[in-house]
Write a protein that binds this DNA or RNA. Structure first.
Lengths: 219, 219, 219, 219
DNA sequence: AATGAATGAGCCTTCATTCAT
DNA sequence: CATGAATGAAGGCTCATTCAT
């Protein structure tokens, strides 16, 4: 009995994941608004109605996708390593981790943006929103920690972390919409520059700290 | 004869503006994709079909709204003045102008973001997109000019201007979506800090330039 | 008073004709179903509403157009002349007249077909239909007369005339829809052949009457 | 399992056919352009959206209807038999077959005419148009064959076949629109007369061939 | 006579969702 | 669990027509 239940549960999870995979592909292909339940179902090899065995609504699919996306983000940030005792490099590594994740997975950025720009047709959103916020903060906490390790007091670390996040998000937005080309710039380079200056500003051990004038205009 | 024509023209313009107002509200509420012609019409007190006397399509409405928003942005940036011969202050003034515009008119931010929303600007006419880009660049040019006046070579000025814009946009995004509260920060303060550091870095005449350490953590 | 009225009436007629001209062009361009009041108005240099000063409805415009088309058909048939005392040639000339009219003015054919295929949204049709029938019969009567002049009794003449008309209409239909190309034939040639055989069959004076076998397969 | 599938398939087909029936009625009533998906759905007892389970578009419905109609036409023509070795009678039988089909199924005539109606076949997929043409030609080929069997060279047979088809179509048109009554004729009789004369002209074995003068005016 | 605003019905189509089987 | 039929609401848009001016 219990075994069968477990097996069934496992199968159910597998199939749920299969649907989610299909959804991811469709969302990636058509965008969040362009994706339809039917299309996702077709991609998964199901009928539209069948999806409702696994998810309560289209938004639930979206929610599961988003949660999973944030999990991957978190994993990637945690996987980013820097030599111990070098908080400046740690900061750079962790910042590059979350920025790189979104830069190389623009669809995950979409997922987040979509929530941000007001989906919420069904009220489920509040819960989802909290989940997003928590995981997001968790993913950014390593950067904040690194800032504190650099000697910044907690409030300053929070401030710098927020600014760092905003900077990255702004760049990702510009990159994502092609707007960055208008400026003839590359988002990655600009982000690296921002991080460099940050480290340079707060890390006494940072190279180049002593001669900011020289490479003032370099990348 | 001429009088009547003028009166009619004025009335027509008024009604067009009235529709545009309604549209602005609906777009802000539902987003560009979520907004429907019917809804806009209802908000304006019209039948759906009636709107087509004033605009050729839903997209045309959006376009008119966006164009007008960018006009106001541009006007505000141009109105921002700084003492002659002080490029550092000019930079701050112009940057604050565009940032302040969007900070205090979040609906205009929406308008621009929606262009941006579903990832790439999809469904938008090429022409419209170009119009947006041109006006946007025009609104940001004064900042670039100020950077050059500070002695930066053109390429560096362009880079810093792009980074500045990205930073502001990131902050506006966080503010707009309430995400900024997660960090316990205020977007305006963070933007001011960014601008300050920018001026400080490039303006030899900037006050506080000599003792950056002191107010390192101040707003 | 009376003069002014006459002048006004004349002007009114002129303008009505002007609208009708525009309508003809639009009908020709877009087809009967594709034409819209707005388009006709634009072509005439008016607003849609203005047309209602001249015509009660869209169908009234159509009716006027059709009536006028039939007038032209009738005029062309009446203008067709053949040497007196040669009913065989008269038959050919008159038949070619109506056939040629529709062959070279396919839009007039449309006009008639449309009525035929059931427009009639407003009840006006009955009257219109009678008008069509009368004028059509009038345009075909010369052929019938020629047949009688060839010595056919009235009922036979009526029968042959009906068959002649049907033959021509069938060919016009095939030509009109491009279907005739499927057969690798030309409508005009086939019609001429039909008329030839008709004359040949009934006209004792017709050339070639004596050796039908010889040119059996010729055009 | 298989049984259930079969049952379901059968039901599905039945419902599709049911929709097609409704569509046939509506198309006949309002014409292809005048008919609306809503009306067809209402006639079938469905919601408009439901039809899209069975057909991809309005045009697909029309296409299915037309294809099926042509299938029936073809079947009827192929079923028409005449004594071997008597090509004259074969010609008459085959010609009567297609003519009779349309004479007794005026809705099928409508279907074909609508392809034809708004002048050129507009809005119709190229593919559909080709399908129509092919099947139509196939249905008429037996007549052409019979003409060749009568000794006509291929080009003459093609010509006579085209003329025969045009004649029948013209008569059907007149009959269908009631116009034939204007002439006090019966379409069937006129068609029979045309076929008789055709056979008489080309079939050496045809009875009455020797005294064409006598029954010159008879039906 | 003419305008231009406005209506209201209609168009084809898409979609998330429900439900009997 | 999965299907497939069906719904009902909504979407952007067109159009003949009316009417105050």
């Amino acid at each position: 009995m219990e075994l069968r239940q477990q097996r069934q549960l496992a199968m159910s999870d597998t199939r749920r994941a299969h649907v989610l995979d299909a959804a991811r592909r469709v969302f990636a292909d058509k965008g969040v608004e362009g994706a339809s339940i039917r299309e996702i179902a077709r991609e998964a090899g199901y009928t539209a109605g069948a999806l409702y065995s696994y998810f309560d609504s289209k938004e639930a699919i979206y929610g599961a996708l988003l949660a999973e996306s944030l999990d991957r983000l978190l994993a990637e940030v945690q996987a980013a390593r820097a030599p111990k005792g070098q908080p400046g490099q740690a900061l750079a590594a962790k910042a590059q981790a979350w920025f790189g994740f979104y830069a190389s997975h623009p669809r995950d950025l979409d997922l987040g943006f979509y929530l941000v720009n007001g989906l919420a047709p069904h009220g489920l959103t509040h819960e989802l929103d909290r989940a997003l916020n928590e995981r997001l903060l968790e993913a950014l906490r390593p950067c904040e920690q690194a800032l504190e390790d650099l000697g910044l007091p907690p409030d300053a670390a929070a401030r710098e972390n927020a600014a760092l996040f905003a900077h990255g998000m702004g760049l990702l937005l510009l990159k994502h919409t092609g707007r960055i080309r208008l400026f003839g710039q590359a988002a990655e380079a600009l982000f690296a520059q921002y991080v460099d200056r940050l480290v340079e500003r707060f890390d006494p051990a940072a190279p180049g700290r002593t001669l900011p004038q020289r490479d003032l205009f370099a990348d």
